Computed example of a mutant assay.
Amino acid sequence: MDSITPLPIALVTGASRGLGAAMAEALAKTHHVVAVARTTGALEELDDRIQAAGGQATLAPMDITNTGAMAQLCRSIHDRWGAIATWVHAAVHAAPLTPAAHLSEGDWTKSVACNVTATGILIPFLTPLLGTEGRAVFFDDAHAGEKFFGAYGATKAAQIALARSWQVETVRTGPRVHILTPNPMATATRARFHPGEDRDALAHPRDEAARLMAELN
Rank of each mutant, 00 (worst) to 15 (best):
His204Lys: 15
Glu25Asp: 01
Arg80Asn: 11
Met70Ile: 00
Thr13Pro: 03
Val116Glu: 15
Asn66Phe: 02
Ala22Glu: 05
Val12Ser: 08
Arg199Pro: 01
Gly120Lys: 05
Met1Thr: 15
Gly134Pro: 00
Ala203Phe: 13
Gly174Asp: 00
Cys74Pro: 03
Ala161Trp: 06
Leu11Thr: 04
Gly174Pro: 01
Glu208Phe: 10
Ala157Glu: 06
Trp81Met: 02
Arg135Trp: 11
Thr127His: 13
Val137Trp: 09
Arg176Trp: 00
Thr86Phe: 01
Ala101Gly: 12
Ala142Leu: 05
Leu130Glu: 01
Gly106Pro: 01
Leu162Glu: 10
His102Ser: 14
Leu162Gly: 10
Thr39Lys: 14
Pro182Trp: 09
Ala95Ile: 11
Gly54Val: 09
Asn115Trp: 03
His194Ser: 09
Lys29Ser: 13
Leu126Lys: 00
Ile9Gly: 02
Val12Trp: 06
Ala201Leu: 12
Thr5Ala: 08
Ile77His: 01
Pro124Arg: 03
Arg49Ser: 07
Val36Met: 05
Ala136Asn: 04
Ala158Thr: 11
Phe138Leu: 06
Leu27Arg: 04
Ile4Thr: 14
Ala136Ser: 08
Thr109Asn: 15
Arg80Cys: 12
Asp48Gln: 13
Ala100Cys: 11
Thr187Trp: 10
His93Ala: 09
Ile84Arg: 03
Val112Pro: 01
Arg17Gly: 07
Gly82Ser: 04
Lys110Trp: 08
Thr127Glu: 10
Ala201Asn: 07
Ala142Pro: 06
Gly153Asp: 02
His102Ala: 15
Gln56Tyr: 07
Ile84Trp: 00
Glu133Ile: 05
Phe148Tyr: 14
Thr173Trp: 01
Thr170Pro: 09
Thr187Gln: 01
Leu103Glu: 11
Ala161Thr: 14
Gly54Asn: 08
Ala24Arg: 07
Ala113Asn: 04
Ala210His: 11
Ala57Arg: 05
Val112Met: 10
Ile4Phe: 15
Ala154Asn: 03
Val92His: 05
Thr155Cys: 07
Glu208Cys: 00
His89Asn: 11
Met70Asn: 06
Arg211Pro: 02
Ala214Val: 00
Val177Cys: 01
Ser3Cys: 10
Thr5Gln: 09
Thr98Gln: 05
Val168Tyr: 13
Ala95Asn: 07
Ile64Trp: 10
Val34Cys: 05
Pro8Phe: 11
Ile84Gln: 04
Asp140Ala: 12
Gly153Ala: 06
Pro184Ile: 08
Thr127Phe: 14
Pro61Asp: 04
Thr109Gly: 03
Thr13Glu: 02
Ala201Lys: 12
Arg38Met: 05
Glu45Phe: 06
